[in-house]
């Protein structure tokens, strides 16, 4: 099956972030980058579908500056066949602009399945996949925690708050991937070597107008220092008293 996976390059979220001098972005000095978690699950899902079928081709698409080529190579080393960089100086904060650029690339690709992570770990917006589906006129399923493909149809499971839905839909379609679906594999040495020779096309990103900007980036307000009420079950009465009289939540 011809599958496209749209991935994003994000910093390691365990990093200690600092704000850049501009006050509107993070300071990138010394940060390590990788595929955003949910996008890595999506790559794994694509690889598993094609491995099960014994045929197919997975293309990874990533929008951003040339540094994203390293991220694309990582997906290629996991086993994807082709990479496409949609070159842009920076990834805008406008998910509709991103979706437009991705849809322009996806439109004539002949993909039967297009996967996204449910959201990127840096911006945490989660709009681009569904928007791309809408721009392409394709059925869309958001936040799938299970996905199975049989011929030209697929079934999926989606977690809602307090319930889950089982769904069925025709292909081609766009699916955004939630956690729990598949653990991304580590690239093998052989995979890393092979990835160096795999095709990686570079094209300009057709972003169109960008209408969302970051005005400020800051650390969240620190929580006022808390206190240890006591040790063991003996501390329970004092805790309950504080919850009643001070926090007023009981």
């Amino acid at each position: 099956m011809k599958i496209a996976v749209c991935i994003k390059r994000v910093p390691d979220m365990e990093s200690r972030f600092k704000i850049a001098a501009s006050g509107t972005a993070i300071d990138e000095t010394g940060l390590k980058y990788d595929i955003s978690d949910f996008d890595a699950y999506a790559v794994e899902v694509a690889l598993q579908i094609n491995e099960k079928a014994g045929a197919g081709e997975t293309t990874v698409i990533c929008l951003g500056p040339d540094a994203v080529q390293e991220t694309i190579r990582k997906a290629l080393s996991m086993g994807a066949e082709k990479g496409v960089q949609l070159r842009a100086d920076a990834v805008p904060a406008d998910s509709l602009a991103i979706a437009r650029a991705l849809a322009a690339e996806l439109k004539d690709g002949g993909y039967e399945l297009i996967l996204f992570g449910k959201h990127a770990l840096d911006t945490m917006t989660g709009g681009a996949g569904t928007m791309a589906a809408e721009l392409l006129g394709l059925p869309c399923l958001t936040a799938a925690s299970r996905l199975e493909v049989t011929g030209a149809r697929a079934t999926a499971r989606r977690e809602l708050e307090g319930a889950a839905e089982l769904l069925e839909f025709p292909l081609p379609a766009v699916v955004t991937i939630d956690e729990g679906i598949a653990r991304p594999r580590y690239p093998s040495l052989k995979g890393i070597m092979a990835a160096k020779k795999k095709p990686l096309d570079v094209k300009p990103a057709q972003l169109g107008s960008v209408r969302v900007s970051v005005e400020k980036m800051e650390l969240p307000a620190e929580r006022p220092p808390g206190r240890i009420v006591g040790t063991g079950p003996d501390a329970v009465p004092e805790l309950v008293r504080l919850l009643q009289t001070e926090a007023k939540v009981l």
């Binding site: 910093p11 979220m13 972030f17 704000i19 904060a93 969302v212 970051v214 980036m217 650390l219 969240p220």
Partner: peptide, 9 residues
Amino acid sequence: YTAKLVATL
């Protein structure tokens, strides 16, 4: 950034 930062958009 996984709730480590707050952006004003």
